[in-house]
Amino acid sequence: MIDLSVDIAGIHFKNPVLAASGTFGYGLEFAELIDLNRLGGFCTKGLSIEPLEGNPPPRIVETHGGMLNSIGLQNIGVRAFVEQKLPHLRKYNTRVIANVFGFSPEEYVDVVRVLNDGDGVAAYELNISCPNVKKGGMEIGNDPNEAARLTEAVKRVAHRPVIVKLSPHARSIAEVARAVEAAGADALSVMNTILGMSVDIYTRRPRLGTVMGGLSGPAIKPIAVRMVFEAARAVSIPVIGIGGIVTAQDALEFIIAGASAIQVGTANYADPGVTIKIIDGLTAYCRQQNIAQIRTLIGTIRC
């Protein structure tokens, strides 16, 4: 029997495969398509203190090896999540990570306070790296001092472990990683989308309603693997790897480079069952490589 379980910030995950925020709704949307109980866990759509309407369309553009999005954190608001979604999610044996967003540090704290009362949330993931909103988001994540200050503020009120989701746009990912670790972060998610742009040559307009958007998908995987490698070397807290994962082989690259778990994002759109296939693929790899416990593989890169 292969043991795929991993422990992150004191939370036990049955396997290291999580679904990434923004690509998995509130989880329930997938219940008809996959067995949620098999997942290590999933991150909710980013939750803000008030519901958000999101950005004007078009909100996505397909690109080579991926896509650009500018959804703009459309969500039902944290209170509606706790009241309407969480009771249903408690029926499933999987870890629910609430992704938290605010337009100011105070708003992040307010969202976490509401979530503290919600039964069934395992951890919080702070989105300080969204490229699709003008305030909050990426402008906090790119500055080590601001990122640390926010982490500290949230840690003071949080009843659950705090994972900080980093931006690829920081001058040095290692620097931000160290700053939020020092501020008390329990783990890191690396990384969010990369800012990009696409132009319609027949209308001469940007192909996204907001001009720019976040690039995701297999095209960004090498960048994400490098970022995870750098972040994992810089800190001693666990790093969760994200960026273009489509297969178990992709997931294994991240784990070997230093990720304690991985998140699957864009691939969920094209194949709602992809997370289950990745879990099965990890088991097959471990069996073939005579690895009894996948946690022994974390950060074993030779270089």
């Binding site: 690509t23 759509k45 094209a270």
Partner: peptide, 16 residues
């Protein structure tokens, strides 16, 4: 019609 990533309600791209 609208630009759509998933088709089953999670990506929130195809809004009208």
């Amino acid at each position: 019609e609208a630009a759509m990533a998933c088709g089953f309600g999670v990506c929130l791209a195809c809004v009208q």
